[in-house]
Each structure stands twice: as C-alpha cells, then as structure tokens.
C-alpha cells in the first residue's frame, strides 16, 4: 500500500541512479539500500514542498558520482557478467558448429572472440552510464543503443572475414575432441544457468541452433528452410526476452 507521490523528476532521478550505480559495477544490495533511502528522503522532502534540486543539487551527474565514489566496486559481479558473456559467445558458436561435424578454430578466432566480448561488456556499461547520467534526447539514446548492438555484430563479421584471409594456427578438435567440447559446453551452459539463475543462455542457444537443425529433417528446400529458421530464431528470442521482461516487472 505504498503510495507513490513522487514527482516525475525525482522518479527519473531514482531510476537513473539505479542504472548509473549498476553500470559502475556496484553491489546490488548496496544500490538498493541507498536508492531506497534517497527515495524515502525525496518523498518526505516533496511532502514539505521542496524540489528535487533542493535535495540532489543542480547536477544529477555530479551527485551520482559523489555517491558512486563512496561505494565499493563489486568485482565478483563484474566477473560474473564477463564469464557469462564469454561463455555464451563460445558455447553458442560451438553448439552451432558441432551439428555440422568436427570443429576447429583458429587462434585468431578464439582471441578475437575474447577481445570482442570484452569490448562489448565495456561498451555496454559505458552506454548505460552515459544514458543514465546525462539528459540525452531520445534520438541520441536510440543511436547509442543501436551502436551497442551493431558494433559487436560488425566486429564479429569482420573477424569472420579476417580468419578467411589471415592464417593463424588452427586448433583441430577431431571427432572425440568435438564430442568432449560439446559435452563440456552443455555442462557449462547448465551450470552457468544455475549459478546465474537465468535460462537466457540455453534459450538463446537453442533458438539459434535448433530451428535450422530440426527443419533439416523436413522436405523443405534450402531457401524456405533458411527463411523459416531465421524467423523462428528471432521470434523465439524476442518472445523470450519480452516474457522475462514482463515477469521481472
């Protein structure tokens, strides 16, 4: 029965603060604590006719920084995201490749994927921090998120081309190696899901890989199959993301 009587401005500030601290790598419980405390303060203050600026000062960004400076960085959580994304990138490509026979990767592919994943994580946190601490127009925000999606994709495509023209030592897995890698990947996907308490990785992997594989058993011609598997992949992932977003609200 909590009545929300907070002004729009204060509400925006509270939401932005949460995102800002989160993308600065702070601990979730500590973020929740300070955010609740400030929300409470803002409610009390607004009841007595004070404005958002009376509380947080003229620059929300400066104030967010001041708070952030006094909070510890939660390296464990950072590692968690890092591991999930790296493992995700590798397991999804391994699972996709396994269905086409024994796998092999060049050193360039392996190293490149690692670097791109790392870049992607840093870019993500940077964009969220930027968007939450500055008043950007919707156009610019949209552009930033678009870049966030397109840059890693472009880099992966670039890497794909680079591996075709630049020869680096290739790690051949062989048949047994491939089975072991596949088994490890599945175990990895399951344990990551349990550890991070989210099914997002296996679900994405399944939607990326299964449609093409299963449709291969039908009598469809190649083109229709490709179109349908792509549609199922994107619709499936989209539906899953929407579903979880709704559930978490």
């Amino acid at each position: 029965m909590k009545e929300v009587i907070l002004s729009k401005r204060s509400q925006t500030f509270i939401e932005d603060l949460r995102v800002y601290l989160f993308s600065s790598g702070k601990k979730e419980e500590e973020i929740e604590e300070i955010v609740t405390e400030l929300e409470d303060h803002l409610i009390e203050a607004e009841k007595r006719g004070k404005s958002t600026e009376d509380i947080i000062g003229k620059s929300p960004k400066t104030y967010m920084q001041q708070l952030s400076n006094e909070m510890k960085i939660d390296y464990k959580t950072w590692m968690k995201y890092f591991v999930i994304i790296i493992a995700g990138v590798f397991s999804i490509s391994i699972i996709g490749d396994i269905l086409n026979g024994p796998i092999s990767y060049s050193l360039l592919e392996i190293g490149g994927s690692l670097v791109i994943s790392l870049l992607f994580i840093m870019l993500t946190f940077w964009v969220f921090k930027l968007v939450s601490s500055r008043s950007l127009t919707y156009g610019i925000q949209g552009l930033l998120f678009f870049l966030l999606a397109i840059v890693p994709l472009g880099l992966f495509i670039g890497l794909e081309f680079a591996t075709r023209s630049i020869t680096t030592p290739v790690v051949e897995f062989g048949l047994i190696g491939t089975w072991i890698a596949g088994g490890l990947t599945v175990v990895f996907l399951i344990s990551i899901s349990i550890w991070a308490k989210t099914l997002v990785l296996p679900v994405i992997a399944a939607f990326l890989v299964l449609p093409e594989y299963l449709l291969g058993f039908t009598s469809m011609n190649e083109e229709t199959m490709l179109i349908w598997s792509t549609i199922i992949t994107y619709a499936g992932i989209g539906a899953y993301v929407l579903f979880t977003a709704k559930k978490s609200k």
Binding site: L38, H41, L67, E70, K72
Partner: peptide, 15 residues
C-alpha cells in the same frame, strides 16, 4: 547545501 550531500558522507562514515 543540498540535503542529499549528507548521503555520500554517511556512506563514507559507514565505510
């Protein structure tokens, strides 16, 4: 001063 100033200070004093 803006009232919110106390929170970074409180955070540090807690630390």
């Amino acid at each position: 001063f803006s009232e919110g100033t106390i929170y970074p200070l409180l955070l540090r004093m807690q630390k």
